[in-house]
C-alpha cells in the first residue's frame, strides 16, 4: 500500500514538473528557421488598439533603437520603410499580406519584416489605484516565403499589491516600455 502511494506521489510530481517545462504560451518560434541568417529587418508601423494615438509610433521608435543597440540586427530606417510601403502599395502596413511582405522585403532589401500590435498603453485604474501598463505583441515574417516564423507577446506594469496598498501610481510609462521591449528582444534571441 505504501509503495503504491509513493509511486503515485512520484508520478504526480513528475507530471507537475513536466507541466513546468512546457513551451511558453506567449511565444512561438519556428524550429526550422535559421534565425542567424537574418541580418537586416524592417519594422512596420504597429497596429494601435489603445486610446493613446501616439503609442504605436513611440513603441516602434524605442523598439527600433533597442534592436539596433543589440548589435545583432540592422534595422532599416523608418523613412526607408515608409518609402517601400508606398512603392509596394501595402493596403494595411500593420498587417501586410504574404505577397505584400515578400514584395516589400525585396524593395527595401530586408531579410525579415517585423509587425506588431499595441494592445494596452497608458494608465489603468482599479478602484482608487492607478498604474501604467503596456501590452504588446510582435511577429517576425521571413522575407523569402512571407511565412510567420516568430511571435511573442508581453505585458508590463499594471496595478500590483504595493500599488493597491500604498498607492504611488506604478512605474513611469517609459520605464515599463523599455522593460517590455527588452523582454520581447530577449524572446527573439532565445
Amino acid at each position: 500500500m505504501t509503495v503504491r502511494f509513493t509511486s503515485a506521489l512520484l508520478l504526480l510530481v513528475a507530471m507537475a514538473l513536466a507541466g513546468c517545462a512546457a513551451a511558453p504560451l506567449d511565444m512561438y518560434r519556428d524550429a526550422n528557421m535559421d534565425f542567424g541568417a537574418v541580418r537586416t529587418v524592417a519594422i512596420l508601423p504597429l497596429a494601435n488598439l489603445t486610446r493613446e494615438s501616439s503609442a504605436a509610433e513611440r513603441v516602434r521608435d524605442v523598439f527600433g533603437t533597442a534592436l539596433l543597440a543589440t548589435g545583432s540586427l540592422y534595422v532599416i530606417p523608418p523613412g526607408e520603410v515608409a518609402r517601400g510601403l508606398n512603392r509596394v502599395g501595402v493596403a494595411n502596413p500593420a498587417a501586410p499580406s504574404t505577397e505584400e511582405a515578400i514584395k516589400l522585403a525585396a524593395v527595401i532589401k530586408a531579410d525579415a519584416i517585423i509587425t506588431g500590435t499595441i494592445k494596452e498603453y497608458g494608465e489603468v485604474r482599479s478602484g482608487s489605484s492607478a498604474a501604467n501598463v503596456i501590452s504588446l505583441s510582435m511577429q517576425l515574417i521571413e522575407a523569402q516565403t512571407g511565412k510567420l516564423v516568430w511571435t511573442a507577446s508581453t505585458t508590463k506594469g499594471g496595478i500590483g499589491i504595493s500599488d493597491r496598498l500604498f498607492g504611488g501610481g506604478g512605474e513611469a510609462m517609459n520605464t515599463i516600455t523599455v522593460k517590455a521591449i527588452d523582454e520581447i528582444i530577449g524572446k527573439l534571441f532565445q
Binding site: P77, P78, G79, E80, V81, A82, R83
Partner: peptide, 11 residues
C-alpha cells in the same frame, strides 16, 4: 519633403 522619416533616396 520627408513625412515619415528620411528614406535612403532622400538621404
Amino acid at each position: 519633403i520627408m513625412e515619415d522619416g528620411v528614406s535612403l533616396a532622400d538621404a
